Amino acid sequence: MSGEDLPEVILLADGRGERPENAAGAGDFWYEPEIWSSPLSPPARVLYAGLCSFAGHGEINRQDLRNLLKGAGDGEILRALGELSEEGLLEPVPGGYRIRSVRERGS
């Protein structure tokens, strides 16, 4: 996302592929536990896991983003989104992001 304001709604597309056997979560709401051992900042790790849990909804709203990173301002959330994009875990698409697999990032 460009700009300094956190949008009201961010669209999410799931580009992670099939759910792996070691996935954490239930049903369509899952994430890869490898995120916790990645070199990302703690806010980016938490945000990634949270975005994955919302992927089945196809969107996440501003309040849910703020709830994921309790105590974080919009600037910190935007920095975490940027870090995930730079690491190849989020691919910008119109209105939002495509979530990519932890195991396939950078490819």
Rank of each mutant, 00 (worst) to 15 (best):
M1P: 06
G3Y: 11
L6H: 06
L6N: 05
P7Q: 13
L11N: 10
L11K: 13
D14K: 02
E18N: 03
R19H: 03
R19L: 01
P20I: 01
A24G: 05
A26Y: 09
A26I: 14
D28M: 11
F29P: 01
W30H: 14
Y31M: 12
E32H: 15
P33I: 12
I35Q: 07
S38E: 14
L40D: 08
L40P: 11
L40S: 11
P42R: 12
P42M: 13
P43R: 10
A44T: 09
Y48S: 00
Y48V: 04
A49I: 13
A49C: 10
A49G: 09
A49K: 02
G50C: 12
L51V: 12
C52D: 03
C52N: 01
F54K: 12
F54M: 06
F54T: 02
G56L: 02
H57Y: 12
E59V: 01
I60C: 09
R62M: 05
Q63Y: 07
D64L: 00
D64Q: 10
D64Y: 02
L65N: 03
R66V: 14
R66F: 03
R66T: 09
N67C: 03
L69N: 09
K70A: 13
G73W: 00
G75Q: 12
G75P: 02
R79E: 03
A80C: 07
L81C: 03
L81A: 02
E83A: 07
L84I: 09
L84T: 09
E86P: 01
E86K: 05
E87T: 00
E87Y: 03
G88C: 03
G88L: 04
G88N: 05
L89H: 05
P94T: 15
P94L: 15
G95H: 09
Y97D: 06
R98L: 13
R98G: 04
R100V: 05
S101P: 01
S101H: 04
R103N: 03
R103P: 01
R103Q: 07
E104P: 00
G106K: 00
G106E: 06
S107Q: 07
S107H: 09
